[in-house]
């Protein structure tokens, strides 16, 4: 008897012919979106402003259609649940949303209370709340700050508290909408490293909405480019980000990738193989051209 041990691929988000029109608008903000995202993926969702990225993310955790009014067509299934048939508090246990500006998300008088808020609303037993809050604060690196007021913290610390609040719900998916735009570059780099760790160690599926790809591109397993409400490109980051089409659309591709493209177009014999996303990789590719033949 033979056992087939295949790595199971579990679909955590599925959309089919998803179209949404906000109340009061004539045109849909997303059109005909069909996506399948599997557990453990690290997806970067990008595209020009107003392309529908944020609207799509609102569909993943039920803010659409439960909070934002409008006309929803097609289907969104998250962790096996049809989003329009389940309330947002139930969906919040499966999909966590981290906003651009942590100020908009934090409100309690202490970090610990902020992190516990969502769980208290679920009516979980006290012990379970305690356990999850401590765990989430430790994973997000804010345990030492638990008695501090969120508004006293730096932007980077606040964003970590927002991440901890989301983690406490033990979601399968975390959606982050430009989570580092208010942070200094070093703070941004650390947040991306931490998100990557969550993805690697806990297998949490990450959907990162981002314009600035210089720091984040190297962590992605997949890049989705939207334009005018539709998914235009979807694939391997190195392939998608090196397409001329992507650049012309106004996606801020990493400068290391751009330099590689320019030199390649000039006919410089760069190291072939993978398209660089980081300075280290670009330097390695360029060094090839300087080797004496």
């Amino acid at each position: 008897m033979r056992f087939m041990v295949a790595r199971e691929s579990v679909e955590v988000i599925k959309t089919e012919k998803l179209t949404f029109t906000y109340a009061g608008r004539n045109e849909p903000s997303i059109r005909d979106v069909g996506l399948s995202i599997e557990k453990g993926e690290f997806v970067i969702l990008t595209g020009p402003s107003g392309c529908g990225k944020t609207t799509l993310c609102r569909c993943f955790n039920g803010l659409i259609p439960h909070f934002y009014q409008g006309k929803l067509e097609g289907e969104v299934i998250v962790a096996g649940l049809k989003v329009n048939e389940h309330p947002t508090y139930e969906l919040a246990c499966h999909v966590g949303l981290v906003f651009q500006n942590p100020e908009n998300q934090l409100f309690a008088l202490s970090v610990e209370k902020d992190v516990a808020f969502g769980l208290e609303n679920l009516g979980l037993p006290r012990e379970e709340i305690r356990k999850r809050v401590d765990w989430a604060m430790k994973v997000a690196g804010v345990y030492e700050l638990k008695d501090r007021a969120p508004y006293e913290l730096s932007g980077g610390q606040q964003q970590r508290v927002a991440i901890a609040s989301v983690l406490a719900m033990r979601p399968e998916v975390i959606v982050l909408d430009e989570p580092t735009s208010f942070l200094d570059p070093l703070g941004a780099k650390r947040i991306f490293e931490d998100i990557y760790k969550l993805n690697q160690k806990l297998g949490i599926t990450v959907i990162l909405v981002e314009h600035r790809l210089d720091l984040a591109a190297k962590y992605a397993t997949r890049v989705i480019v939207m334009n005018d409400g539709r998914v235009l490109l979807d694939g391997d980051p190195r392939e998608v980000l090196s397409l001329e089409k992507t650049r012309l659309l106004g996606v801020g591709i990493p400068k290391a990738t751009r330099l590689y493209q320019l030199l390649k177009n000039d006919g410089i014999p760069l190291k072939s193989g993978k398209v660089p996303l980081t300075p280290e990789e670009a330097a390695e590719a360029i060094k090839e051209a300087f080797k004496s033949d």
């Binding site: 570059p185 070093l186 210089d214 720091l215 290391a256 000039d266 300075p279 670009a282 390695e284 060094k287």
Partner: peptide
């Protein structure tokens, strides 16, 4: 807490083959 631009970082790694390290813009780099 600022990180150099990607181009400057790239040139930092190219220092050992004799390229200058004071480059910040992609077209200048090319």
């Amino acid at each position: 807490s600022v990180i150099p631009p990607q181009i400057t970082q790239t040139f930092h790694y190219l220092k050992d083959i004799g390229l200058p390290t004071n480059v910040i813009d992609v077209y200048e780099a090319r």
